[in-house]
Simulated assay, not measured.
Amino acid sequence: MKIIAVIPARYASTRFPAKLMQDLGGKTVITRTYEAAIETKLFDDVFVVTDSELIFDEIISNGGKAIMSIKAHESGSDRIAEAVEYLDVDIVVNVQGDEPFINKEPLEKVIEVFKQDEARQIDLASPMLEITDETEINNPNNVKVVVDQSGFALYFSRSVIPYPREKNVGVRYFRHIGIYAFRKQALLDFYSLPMKSLEASEKLEQLRYLEFGKKIKMVETSHVGIGIDTPEDLEKANEMIRKLDN
């Protein structure tokens, strides 16, 4: 089974333009992320896929592997699918380009799902984190997921799911962590399928997979990535780098 990591990397960002090319301890954010993915030793290969010549040149000039997007894409899955269409690969893991402090544990868990899936019933795997704070549960920026008794995703939403009409029934709430592992065919299928109403309403690409019958296996984790979404996040990340270097 050949397993690769693909890091989708857009240059534009609404909250923090060009964040992937910002300096983080003497290297760009995207280079740090690329090197961290390699250092996990979980992948047969690692690629950055991007719409930016600056990012492409940055990775290539540092000895890495990059793929230039041919088309404009609305989602990370679309960008990755185009990139891997002609690659000889079985499992593709989406690594977020703005998370240079990669934690190995959730990546190992989503990869292990496919190693155990001898019947090939699983199309995607993704981690989830239990949340108990009401503010977090009600925050629409935290995507929630509900699963069946076998751990397969039933639905994802920015709303509170399940709705707590009855408080004392032992419901657990889970936040979806945006790491995905795909069978290559599931990605290619996604690429050819239209966006339907659920995905359009919630602005969540994983709903396209569910709307078209794909099976998403969720795995519980206690680890959350440290993303760089604002200049303040970058400063915190640089502080972490300085502490690690000392």
Results as ranks from 00 to 15, higher is better:
Ser159Thr: 08
Ser192Leu: 11
Asp123Pro: 02
Val160His: 04
Glu118Cys: 01
Ile102Pro: 08
Asp123His: 12
Asp148Leu: 10
Pro140Leu: 08
Asp117Tyr: 02
Gly178Lys: 03
Leu129Glu: 02
Arg183Lys: 14
Asp148Asn: 15
Thr132Arg: 13
Lys104Ile: 15
Glu130Gln: 15
Leu187Met: 09
Lys115Val: 03
Lys104Gln: 11
Ile91Cys: 03
Glu108Val: 03
Ala153Val: 15
Glu130Trp: 00
Lys109Ser: 14
Asn138Lys: 15
Val93Lys: 05
Lys144Trp: 04
Gln121Lys: 11
Lys184Tyr: 07
Asp88Pro: 01
Val95Lys: 06
Val92Asn: 03
Gln116Val: 02
Pro162Leu: 11
Tyr155Pro: 00
Lys167Tyr: 12
Lys184Ala: 08
Phe101His: 05
Pro140Tyr: 04
Tyr191Ser: 06
Asp133Gln: 06
Asn141Asp: 12
Arg183Gln: 08
Val95Glu: 02
Ile137Lys: 08
Thr132Gly: 00
Lys184Trp: 04
Glu136Asn: 10
Glu112Val: 01
Lys167Ser: 13
Val145Met: 13
Asp98Cys: 07
Asn142Gly: 07
Lys167Pro: 08
Arg120Val: 02
Glu99Ala: 14
Pro106Ile: 12
Leu187Arg: 07
Lys115Tyr: 11
Phe152Val: 12
Val95Gly: 04
Glu130Val: 05
Asn94Asp: 05
Lys184Asp: 09
Ala153Ile: 14
Val113Asn: 07
Leu124Arg: 01
Val147Gly: 04
Leu129Asp: 00
Val171Ala: 10
Asn103Lys: 15
Leu154Met: 15
Pro106His: 13
Ala186Tyr: 05
Ile131Gln: 03
Ile161His: 08
Val113Trp: 05
Met128Thr: 01
Ile131Trp: 01
Glu130Cys: 01
Glu99Trp: 00
Glu136Cys: 00
Ser157Lys: 05
Val89Arg: 01
Val171Gly: 00
Leu154Cys: 09
Ile137Trp: 02
Asn94Gln: 14
Ser157Asn: 11
Val145Phe: 05
Thr135His: 04
Val171Tyr: 12
Gln96Gly: 02
Asn168Ser: 10
Gln96Cys: 05
Phe152Gln: 10
Asn168Gly: 07
Ser126Cys: 06
Ala125Pro: 02
Lys184Glu: 08
Leu187Ser: 11
Arg165His: 10
Lys104Leu: 05
Thr132Trp: 00
Tyr173Ile: 06
Lys184Val: 09
Tyr163Leu: 13
Val89Gly: 05
Val145Ser: 09
Asp123Met: 02
Glu99Cys: 12
Gly151Tyr: 09
Val93Pro: 05
Ser159Asp: 15
Glu130Arg: 14
Pro162Tyr: 06
Arg175Pro: 00
Glu112His: 14
Phe174Met: 11
Pro162Asn: 12
Glu108Tyr: 01
Pro106Ala: 11
Val113Asp: 05
Thr132Asp: 07
Phe114Pro: 13
Ile102Asp: 07
Asn168Met: 08
Gln116Ser: 13
Tyr191Lys: 13
Tyr173Ser: 09
Ala119Cys: 02
Glu136Arg: 11
Ala181Arg: 07
Glu108Gln: 15
Gly170Met: 07
Val147Ala: 12
His176Asn: 11
Val147Trp: 02
Tyr155Val: 10
Asn138Tyr: 05
